[in-house]
Design a binder for these strands. Structure first.
Lengths: 243, 243
DNA sequence: TTGTTTTGTAACAGCATGCAACAAAATCAA
DNA sequence: TTGATTTTGTTGCATGCTGTTACAAAACAA
């Protein structure tokens, strides 16, 4: 196996750095993450083989984060916790953690657990990676997951910005499912929005921009439909396939 | 591997001698050092494969010495300490120790740790070496790792400067993986950048220069893609092979 | 109808990025 | 050595991306 890429999630900068350096010295590439935003960015921008997740995050509960990650991908998760009651441990397994280690832990133990989880899930990890490279056909359009090229029914290639691309990917992953602005904001890691406040209109504007590029009639959109009071739906059948 | 040369750093003459003799009896060359001055002398006068560093040095803190050594070279360090709270251990890893052993320690354990660290670092070194001598094919181009020749799909040989070559090697070693400017700067040892400050644009310019030489359309690059807010990705499949 | 809420979007400001031009540093030639 | 050439980092400007704001249009409730 190639060098494992391990994301270290901990909001304490010191522990984060220590773990990061420890992993790097032991032959892994460590990707530190302090917040859920960091997590999402790492998940989207590169292959992650394993997540080391501290349960005691400041703003958000590690258990919740773990549950969320589990629903979205197949990357194995090792939870690390200062508290190690059996209840905690059970909660961790319940939301899909692959292993659970109590602090303070023996470093050899940590390495052994990491290795065990990695070999156990090796096949799943490579599959997860391949899934990122899928191609999609929708409403006559096509999206190439390897090159990020978006092609119109007429064969024109339409350049999308990073945000527009992220939005399209989110929609493609959730066809026919109404998505709230919050959900979209979280999925594509928008700064200004996502706090549930009505002031941030970033998603609205972004949707408008994507519509202007891929809708035949942006004023009366066919694919990205508005659900008043809810959010938006991608109302198109999507075919996923490998190239 | 040749006989490992291990520097023993401890200001207690007795322990220093015990360790030295123990190592010598077990097939290593031990180089005793009592002070930072000794350390420096040894580092300058000969190859050192590993440093065994006692945390409780009289005049200086072992942690500080370790940190200093780490910034200056890549010799692996095993810290030895009478105190072995997890805090101590963590501090050791934080400043870059490769392993941490509490006194009094089992001699078998010590030997095992030494062996582990040595093989670990040795393999990393040999892998890095082999990679340098590999050949790469990417997007119709080829790179000869022995001669550093870069050949275009049309068969033209394109001369790259040293920095451009280093950048290309870094990209080739990390295909499809987003690299931050910091990571690139560290990998190719750029002076002006790497401190995380936004002022240094050396990497941007360097990327531009490499693009102008190897991208079909430098204005709309196919291979070296920009990830806004992140860095750059080498978005090409890379085939590595020996000549 | 009228008034309120929600959504669409143009205009704007702040940044990140690309790049040309320059300057400093290294290398080479003689 | 000196001077020419190449390499490499810096700077300033142009461009494009992105979130905010303000206002208009649409949808809804009464």
């Amino acid at each position: 196996m190639a060098i494992p890429r391990i994301m270290v999630v901990d909001d304490d900068p010191e522990i984060r750095q220590i773990l990061t350096q420890f992993l790097q010295r032991n032959g892994s590439m460590a990707l530190p993450a302090a917040s859920e935003a960091d997590i999402r960015r790492h998940m989207e921008t590169g292959r992650i083989d394993l997540i080391l997740l501290d349960v005691m995050l400041g703003d958000e509960n590690g258990i919740d984060i773990c549950a969320k990650l589990r629903t979205q991908n197949d990357v194995p998760i090792i939870m690390v916790s200062a508290l190690s009651t059996d209840q905690q441990r059970m909660a961790g397994y319940a939301v899909g953690a692959d292993d659970y280690i109590a602090k303070p832990f023996n470093t050899d133990l940590l390495l052994a657990r990491i290795k065990a989880v990695l070999t156990r899930t090796q096949r799943a990890a490579s599959l997860a990676h391949r899934r990122r490279l899928s191609n999609f056909d929708f409403g006559g359009w096509s999206y190439n997951g390897r090159t990020d090229e978006v092609t119109s029914p007429q064969g024109y290639q339409v350049p999308l910005s990073q945000r527009e691309l992220a939005l399209l990917q989110t929609l493609l992953a959730n066809p026919h499912i109404p998505l709230t602005r919050d959900e979209i904001a979280k999925a594509i890691d928008v700064i200004g929005d996502g706090g549930g406040d009505t002031s941030g209109r970033a998603i609205d504007v972004l949707v408008g921009r994507l519509r202007s590029k891929i809708e035949t009639n942006p004023k009366d959109p066919d694919m990205i439909r508005t659900q008043r009071g809810v959010g938006y739906v991608f109302a198109v059948d999507v075919v996923t396939h490998q190239s």
